[in-house]
Nucleic acid binder design. Structure first.
Lengths: 202, 202
DNA sequence: TAATTACGATACGTTAGCGTTTCGCATTAT
DNA sequence: ATAATGCGAAACGCTAACGTATCGTAATTA
């Protein structure tokens, strides 16, 4: 190997600012406008670069979209591991519920779900990058809860995962009517923890 | 009043077959193709009628779409009222989870949610017609459960609603990976009923 | 029968977005 | 300096869909 950068192109190097601008513009555009309005031209305009700059990097919209989606998997909510089991669970779920109800990732997820039947490989990619890691993380947390005796060992894991993630997704969608999504993550975990049957029946 | 039909047009009456064909075509098209591809022309083609026939009934795509959405609220899952409280609840939730995971209403709901920020009045309409009636129905069921003593009277109603509806929506979305949505409605209700804490801690 | 309206088919001009290409200038290696 | 590549700007032709209008035929009332 002759140089530190094995293959160093001769001409003017590509602007890494343009790289970043295109990547973020692609994600935001898809979240804001949806699959249909996602086009090379729209991405270029939003990124503040020329169309030629985009086409030099990606052959077409599918390639660009796929590249943008790979940036979604980065930040899986981390596992706290210290503190009470229930606190950890609540904290993790809050991480899924995430910032504003209309966060970038949330909006992208909804778009993908809507377009899923028409573009199964896009859906598969997002499933693999976003949904699966979070499912696995919940599974880990639940298993640790069982081992530490905080959780019923005979509980149905898959059903519990649905009971934990489902409401988060649902409440995220209920940005519709603000007062309807008033239920906090804490109260949800608390209800699920104690169950629905009266204490006298236990 | 002169006649039984107060205003009887003179010429050829409008075909009620065309009415129905347009209405169903509009719903299916929106579910299949999404908001962007929803157009007067596409609806006419799918309905098997000419564009003129559609334009004679609706001024534009917004009017047509709004009319189509009003047909969604019709069949709220009925309240069984006979049988065990938990059986009723399970049955009702199965009704929400609904037939095939890709039912017409499900797909429309996802589309609306995705396009919600861009078209808030469409979202508001569907919220009013589909979501709210089901929320209210769950509320009724839960209150009846409290009155009959099957349900903890101090339970947080809003959190419980999220815990019931959320997983149904979530599992509906998990048509992605068939094995992942294996959790049945029964097991979900069972877990929620008994709670997550070990019996020894209750 | 005459008048009136609905229907299917089709054609029209307009608009918007697409992917592509070209141009002059900027930036880098040799 | 020279060659090579990236960049923004702009123009290209193409396609698809839009809303509208026209036509002959069908159905209904007066």
């Amino acid at each position: 190997m002759a140089t530190q950068t094995p293959v160093r192109a001769k001409g003017r190097p590509r602007s890494c600012l343009a790289d970043a601008a295109i990547a973020t513009a692609a994600l935001e555009l898809f979240a804001d406008e949806g699959f249909e309005r996602f086009s090379m031209e729209a991405v270029a305009t939003r990124a503040g670069v020329s169309k030629a700059t985009v086409y030099r990097r990606f052959c077409g919209r599918d390639e660009l979209l796929a590249h943008a989606m790979t940036q979604l998997g980065a930040d899986v909510p981390k596992m706290p591991e210290l503190g009470d089991f229930w606190e950890n669970l609540t904290q993790f779920l809050d991480g899924i519920r995430e910032s504003a109800p209309g966060s970038l990732k949330s909006r992208i997820m909804i778009r993908v779900l809507g377009e899923g039947e028409r573009h199964p490989q896009l859906q598969a990619m997002v499933t693999e990058l976003v949904i699966r890691p979070r499912q696995a993380r919940v599974r880990l947390i639940l298993n640790s809860g069982i081992q530490s005796g905080r959780l019923r060992p005979d509980v149905d894991i898959e059903a519990t995962i649905a009971l934990l993630i489902g409401p988060m997704v649902w409440l995220k969608m209920l940005r519709l009517t603000p007062e309807a999504g008033a239920a906090t993550t804490e109260t949800i975990v608390e209800v699920l923890r104690a169950g629905l049957v009266p204490a006298s029946h236990s």
